[in-house]
């Protein structure tokens, strides 16, 4: 019995890992293939960007140096994979001579702050509100929350960002509308943090509001499913108060599907954040993406894609493991 359980668990984790590996290898393959199909010689592109001319000898020398004269398969793809695994993502076109990994590394903290804070706020507000709406389905809170959430859910987050700027920055002047620090005189460290937070407010609000819309919808659905379950009738028959039923029986069961849904959502959170960063000129991955898109800086774009792929896969792994801990039926 115990042996079987152990085996079942191992095979489940094995499956999860296989899926993650397949997804990652497809991300890498896509990256490799896309990079090769771009017309023009990569060496020429890298040396001069798309629009400059470089002598043929230099290009040839560079081709040999980078192994571009060797066959695509298996030599080049293996080189690519090994370089990628070593964290070498190549050089940027736009920021000449800069390592893509350095560029991404520099921009990452700003995005993590934005996405992390927004995600946290959205989970607290959205999930709680959604669970409550599902618990009191058909009530006033439910109707209002559901209407507002569906609207937020359908709103592109960057547009929400623009609206927030118009209202709270341009019209009311409460928060700055772009950037990460106010330009100008050097100021004390506490003021600097306050300044940073003031700049963070609107981007976080834009990302979080969109997410709240989604989380209310899914949390409400999860809770509505739980409410009709037989064990809720059992809990009621046991003479539990509504609060006890909610906290002891409904909450954890409703959270189970949400763990997966919210983690699966990470890709969409980042996607939303990319456009919101563009609105606020927020110096994160999203800002970098827009710059790379405009300059057709493919190495940077590929690097960002790889980063997103890896984070999404990692988030899914985490979700699978967390689910296994939360749900005894899987844990077995």
């Amino acid at each position: 019995m115990a042996g079987n359980a152990q085996e079942g668990r191992t095979s489940r984790i094995g499956n999860v890992l296989i899926r993650a590996a397949i997804t990652l290898s497809m991300v890498a393959t896509l990256n490799f293939v896309l990079f090769r199909v771009i017309p023009g010689d990569p060496a020429a592109l890298l040396l001069g960007g798309a629009r400059m001319s470089v002598s043929a000898e230099r290009i040839e020398a560079q081709r040999q140096n980078w192994g571009l004269d060797r066959p695509l398969f298996p030599d080049q793809i293996l080189d690519y994979l090994s370089a990628t695994l070593h964290g070498d993502l190549g050089y940027s076109f736009k920021f000449r001579g800069r390592l893509v990994s350095d560029l991404i590394w520099e921009r990452l903290p700003a995005t993590i702050a934005l996405v992390g804070l927004a995600q946290l706020i959205a989970m607290l507000c959205g999930v709680m509100l959604g669970l409550y709406a599902g618990w009191r389905r058909g009530g006033a809170v439910d109707r209002i929350a559901m209407g507002a959430s569906l609207a937020l859910y359908s709103t592109p987050s960057f547009w929400l960002a623009m609206v927030l700027v118009v209202i709270f920055s341009t019209a009311l002047g409460w928060f700055p509308g772009y950037g990460i620090y106010s330009p100008g005189a050097s100021i004390g460290s506490t003021d600097k943090i306050l300044d940073y937070l003031r700049h963070l407010a609107l981007p976080v609000a834009a990302v979080a509001l969109g997410l709240i819309g989604q989380y209310v919808v899914v949390a409400r659905a999860a809770m509505s499913d739980v409410v009709t379950e037989d064990y809720m009738v059992t809990a009621r028959a046991k003479g539990l108060t509504n609060g006890q039923m909610l906290m002891r029986h409904a909450f954890r069961n409703a959270m189970l599907p949400l763990v997966t849904l919210i983690t699966l959502n990470l890709g969409y959170v980042v996607a939303g954040a990319i456009t919101v960063e563009a609105v606020f000129a927020w110096p994160g991955i999203g800002g970098l993406t827009v710059e790379a898109l405009n300059a057709r800086d493919y190495p940077v774009l590929q690097g960002i894609f790889l980063l997103l792929g890896v984070s999404i896969v990692a988030a899914n792994l985490l979700a699978d493991l967390a689910y296994g801990i939360l749900d005894p039926r899987i844990r077995q």
């Binding site: 064990y231 009738v233 028959a237 046991k238 003479g239 954890r252 005894p328």
Partner: peptide
């Protein structure tokens, strides 16, 4: 108002084979 009566005076045996027990 029924709450104090429930389970202390009248209890119910549901179909346990179904989902009447909380799975978690």
């Amino acid at each position: 108002a029924m709450r104090p009566h429930r389970w202390t005076e009248t209890s119910v045996v549901f179909q346990g084979a179904m989902n009447a027990l909380n799975p978690v």
